[in-house]
Amino acid sequence: MRAGVGMRLWGMIRKESLQILRDPSSISIAFVMPVVLLFLFGYGVSLDAKLIPVGIVIEQPDTASQSLAGAFDRSEFFNPRRFDTIQAAEQALNQRLIDGIVWLRNDFSSRLLSGDEAPIGVIINGVDSNQANITQGYIQGTWLAWLDHYAESRGQALPMPVSLEQRVWFNAALSSRWFLVPGLIAITMTLIGSLLTAMVVAREWERGTMEALMVTPLHRIEVLAGKLIPYFVLGMGGMLFSVALAVWQFDVPLRGSFWLLMVSSALFMLVALAIGLLISIVAKNQFVAGQMAIIITFLPAFILSGFLFDINSMPGWVQFITHLVPARYFVAILQTLFLAGDVWPVVLGNMGALLIMLLLFFTLVWRKFHKRLE
């Protein structure tokens, strides 16, 4: 009896494996798509603000004003352009040639030397509020660093009531690549698990082979296992390939345990497979199943998982919805394992949420899938 079950299951697995090998799109989604996405986000997309174009307006050039302008020239964050008048700089700002203006009026040096307040005019393009805040912070930081150097060169103590000593943990270089690439692994696994599996049962209905499966001695669990195991192996292979690219191509550190990464990835892959299979059972049409998989799994994983947008910055009701997105928990696990290490409270808490989702979706799959015509 056990040998018969094993043979039937092996036959089902072999059938689905051959189907995968005969379908170039499955291999492309599992191995080509991760490469495209990783290279696109790793090299083409950056959240780092560097070489920000700013205009420098000096109404009365002298030693102090030229020294401050030189601080912007030497900064890795700015690509400054000199303008003779504020009107010319404002015109360049209106034409989107620069993102900000640093305006040193004609009394800047005299007020600075007299010990009086020497205000600097700063005008920033606020169309992109996030970029505007970053630009404002970098301008203020450059100004304060120059002011400290200026006071030191004159043998004066800069009256600063607070001394800031900052230390950045986990991503000292503040590289957005280290933040994006681990989260992107969750996006690719969502594509592999949900999108491909969403068309498994629907394909059987469209081709008329579901009736043939129903008259076989295969048990319901053997059909489900036979369909899921090949895609699980395919998804884990894509995950390993993505991790290898992240570590060796993009130099993202993996500070946590590799085996803990494997276990959490396997858990998330099972959740994605269960969701895809549930969609496939309900839809019974490949096109509809594919569209549902994109809307239900891929788009929420891309927008609401914390991969690209900070969840804490979202409205409260949207933050509540993110708890229904499995990728949210896996992205948190990936970013923790890659950048911080084995932080067990974070990893175990998110794995617990994924386990609950796994039980829920497999229960729904078991109740919805029947070996009979309806």
Rank of each mutant, 00 (worst) to 15 (best):
L355G: 08
Q140A: 14
L97G: 13
A327N: 05
A301V: 07
V102W: 01
R367P: 00
L18H: 12
D148R: 14
G238N: 07
I294T: 11
V347F: 07
S176M: 06
L174G: 05
I356D: 08
L184S: 08
I52P: 00
F77Y: 12
P326K: 10
S65I: 01
N133W: 07
N79H: 15
A332P: 02
A327F: 09
T197D: 01
H219Q: 15
S242K: 00
I124W: 01
F41R: 00
V247H: 09
M12V: 09
V252L: 13
F77C: 09
R367N: 06
V365S: 02
D251E: 15
L47T: 10
F287K: 04
S25Q: 11
I29M: 09
V200F: 02
A151K: 10
L304W: 07
F250R: 07
I185N: 05
G193I: 03
S46M: 11
V263E: 05
L218P: 01
Q291W: 06
V346W: 03
F179M: 15
F338H: 06
T197R: 04
E374W: 08
F302S: 12
G235T: 05
L104R: 01
R154C: 06
A69P: 02
V223S: 00
M160V: 14
I20H: 02
A202Y: 00
R220D: 09
N350L: 02
E76T: 15
K284V: 00
T142H: 06
W366N: 11
T135N: 09
L191H: 06
T85E: 06
A289H: 00
V35Y: 13
W205I: 09
K50H: 12
S257L: 03
G235A: 06
A172G: 12
F330S: 02
F361K: 01
L334D: 12
E165Q: 14
L360R: 05
S176F: 08
A202C: 03
G126Y: 14
P253D: 11
A301Y: 09
F307M: 15
G256Y: 03
A172Q: 14
G44D: 10
F320H: 11
L38S: 04
L360E: 09
S264I: 00
S265A: 15
L180K: 11
P161Y: 09
F170G: 03
V346K: 07
E76S: 14
D116P: 07
W248H: 15
D48P: 03
I221G: 10
M189P: 01
V271G: 09
A198D: 00
L68T: 02
W344G: 00
V343K: 11
H219A: 14
V343I: 13
A145V: 10
A118H: 01
S194F: 07
G141N: 13
G276Q: 02
Q95T: 12
D62G: 14
T142L: 09
L164M: 13
R167Y: 10
Q335C: 04
W169H: 06
L234I: 02
T142A: 13
I58D: 04
F307L: 15
L355D: 07
K368Q: 13
A69G: 08
V247S: 10
P80Q: 07
D310M: 11
G183K: 08
E16H: 00
S176D: 05
D148C: 04
V200P: 00
R207A: 11
G341C: 03
